Simulated scan of single mutants.
Amino acid sequence: MSFKSPADIANSACATATGKCSLRISQMLFLGFLAGAYIGFGGFLYTVVTQDLSQYVGLGLSKLVGGASFTVGLMLVIIAGGELFTGNCLIPIGALAGCVTLKEILKNWVIVYFANLIGSLFLAYLIYRTGLASDAVGSNALKIASGKMSLPFEIAFFSGILCNWLVVLAVWMAMAAEDIISKIFAIFFPIMAFVASGFEHSIANMYFMALGILLKNNEGLVSQAGLSSHSLDALSVGGFLNNIIPVTLGNIIGGVVFVALFYYLAYKDKIKA
């Protein structure tokens, strides 16, 4: 076959876990920063594409096209190289197989998550400074951010589970691919599905919500977005945490349980630690 079988992917995932946990702290920081920015690029493209598309093609197709545009973020992470916290929710398969320790995984997660945050915030600031997030694009960015920051804990949590189930499946499938084009297609469909479905991704949300906070003092954009005072109040550090905590917890469960754990249990007899 020109691609790896699921059992072979399980072995590759263990080898990948070993490699990721062996990275120097400086490597985790640099690659994590890049991954946070790459996901932000996908987020900005999504915002531009969906700013007015629904009035021409309908809401459903607008979400589909927006989801397709967002896939560029994970393509950049996997093909160009980056350390993404949500994707790294696959590496516990290495601990289950005895390739790495839980301590090594937690070290990777904490450093990469912090680096993803910095990269996301930095890109949001750059986008803000370009002035490109103005008019319809800026009002769309405000609506996206306020919607995320107003989500109840339970909805954000379960949306986070569903999101990272698909994101880590995209990483899993990309490991099966033996060439660039195959990797692109392996990434494209699961990521398009999670975005079009409206699920919640912690690293993408860091970018979306940071840009929303930066834009909230633009009265013209606020008026154009039609935000209520309650929605505007949600655009704050408190609103950021209100979303990012449950979404992060959900992302961990979605990736670790439904991909890493389940595939380990399915193929543990074929994994060579």
Rank of each mutant, 00 (worst) to 15 (best):
S197T: 14
L265N: 12
E83C: 15
V256F: 11
G36S: 07
S146G: 12
L74P: 02
T71V: 10
L61P: 00
A17W: 03
L53Y: 03
D179C: 09
I79K: 13
L166A: 06
L221I: 08
A7Q: 14
L102Q: 00
G138E: 07
Y46T: 12
I187E: 04
G220M: 08
V110Y: 10
I118W: 01
S159D: 07
G60K: 01
F199T: 12
A225F: 15
I180F: 03
P246R: 02
N164W: 02
G82N: 13
Y263F: 06
G87D: 02
S150A: 14
V49I: 15
G43Y: 05
A17S: 13
S150N: 15
A7H: 09
S159L: 14
G81Q: 12
S236Q: 14
I93H: 02
E83G: 09
L232K: 14
E178D: 12
I9V: 15
G239W: 00
G32R: 13
G98Y: 01
S22T: 10
M75F: 12
A15Q: 08
M175W: 11
L121R: 02
L241E: 01
T18G: 04
T86C: 07
T71P: 07
K268Y: 08
G198C: 05
G60D: 13
E200P: 04
G250V: 03
E154F: 13
F85P: 01
Y267K: 08
G40H: 07
G40A: 11
A37T: 11
S159Q: 13
D269C: 02
T16M: 09
M209S: 05
F33D: 01
I180H: 11
V49G: 04
F153N: 10
I111G: 01
L126D: 00
T86M: 13
A124P: 04
I244C: 00
K148S: 04
A273K: 02
G19A: 08
Q51R: 15
N108K: 02
F199E: 05
S2D: 13
T16L: 10
I93L: 11
P190D: 07
G147H: 14
P190L: 08
E219I: 06
N88H: 06
G66V: 03
Y128G: 01
Y207F: 15
S26M: 06
F85C: 01
I155N: 10
Q55Y: 13
A68P: 05
F70N: 09
Y56F: 15
G42F: 14
S54E: 12
V49R: 14
I271V: 09
F188Q: 05
F157N: 01
E154L: 13
H230C: 04
A196K: 07
T101D: 00
V72P: 10
G66C: 05
W109A: 11
Q55M: 12
L23M: 08
G87W: 04
A234M: 15
A80P: 05
A266D: 01
K272C: 10
F70L: 09
L61C: 02
I253D: 07
K148E: 07
P246L: 05
V259E: 07
C163N: 12
G138K: 03
N251S: 02
